[in-house]
Design a protein around this nucleic acid. Structure first.
Lengths: 187, 187
DNA sequence: GTAGTTTTTTGACATTTGTCAAATAGATTT
DNA sequence: AAATCTATTTGACAAATGTCAAAAAACTAC
């Protein structure tokens, strides 16, 4: 839950209550390496918070597997557009390795918010947080060359490289695996 | 306010009240063509909702002017990361033509939320809405070729092309003006 | 430890896009 | 209408990236 706490003033007593309530709604699930957690075409009903290991959201573009998002400890993943809009998802989610993740269901969040509307604020703050992450991602894609994107990713998520194939990283930063390989060779 | 209403169930009486309160906080401002509305380096204190005409958010990358976002009627613009995080903005905002826009200040929104925490939900819904727009933008950038991005933009915002220079559109879809010109010539 | 599988790298070449400079077209001002 | 300014297009070439095929390296399972 670190990522939520990070952006909220935990001196508010209400926050403590909110976090406790959230914890109680979370279930710990176990996933095997390469296990599919969510499949494109269905509605995404859960957010996943990895406790260890990495999860990956991806989709297919003309048979090519493109990574949209990685989530390790302290981060989260869901087919968020599907989760929010309750419509079919284009994303798949899979475990990149044997791991555990806390899950939080759409239903449970809605009921919690309905029961405690004062918690809306924390969901808003969470959304603000992930919105800004996305905005940074766009800047990165528009602004930077492939090489710069690669170097920024190393700085920002160094642990990623011990867990994730280079092919997935390449598609995440929007280039082919071969190009990534050549960028790496340059150093 | 169309964009807010679109995504909220207006049968809730509370929503009507919320919208009324928002309206009352909004101020109508007038801008001249090419007028700078917000300057990089300062904190963005307002969201702008054009009534007519187009506004543009942009930044500089190595002296090149890059458009991050267009806003016409029914849409909105702000240096949203700055607005949310209260830190200096890298974005500039300008009017692309003589126009009027409603503005909503950070201060006023905060006070409204503090006075009526039940409204948090609507801000959350608004954030969900703009989050999804951003996610679509990323997919577009990663997924599609320059030509496809151009064609999608025509479909999605046809009016844009009557108001905006091709140079701005080119930087928005992440290509040079010359490349855009060649794409257009192909048809 | 060997065989088999997957991942990563490399080579050769094609394609896309960018850059710079100049030409053209379109607007605006006088 | 001419002069001026701005926006757009075009040409020539350079740079970046993609594609396909094959080799090399790393990892797995027996």
């Amino acid at each position: 839950m670190q990522f939520i706490i990070d952006h909220i003033d935990i001196s508010e007593p209400l926050v403590v209550q909110f976090l406790t309530d959230l914890q109680n709604l979370m279930k710990l699930e176990h996933f095997e390496k390469n296990q599919k957690i969510h499949t494109a075409g269905s509605i995404c009903d859960k957010i996943y918070f990895p406790q260890n290991g990495f999860l990956r959201a991806y989709y297919y573009k003309e048979d090519k597997d493109i990574t949209a998002h990685f989530a390790g400890e302290g981060s989260s993943v869901a087919a968020i557009d599907s989760f929010i809009q309750r419509k079919k998802s284009r994303y798949n989610i899979e475990a990149l390795e044997k791991c555990n993740a806390f899950t939080l269901s759409y239903q449970d969040i809605q009921e919690l918010l309905a029961a405690h509307p004062v918690y809306e604020k924390y969901i808003r703050l969470f959304l603000e947080h992930i919105y800004i992450e996305l905005a940074e991602r766009i800047e990165d894609l528009v602004f930077n060359t492939a090489k710069e994107r690669y170097e920024k990713l190393i700085l920002k998520q160094p642990t990623l490289f011990q867990h994730v194939n280079l092919g997935h990283i390449a598609s995440y930063i929007g280039i082919s695996q071969e190009t990534l390989s050549r960028i790496r060779a340059q150093k």
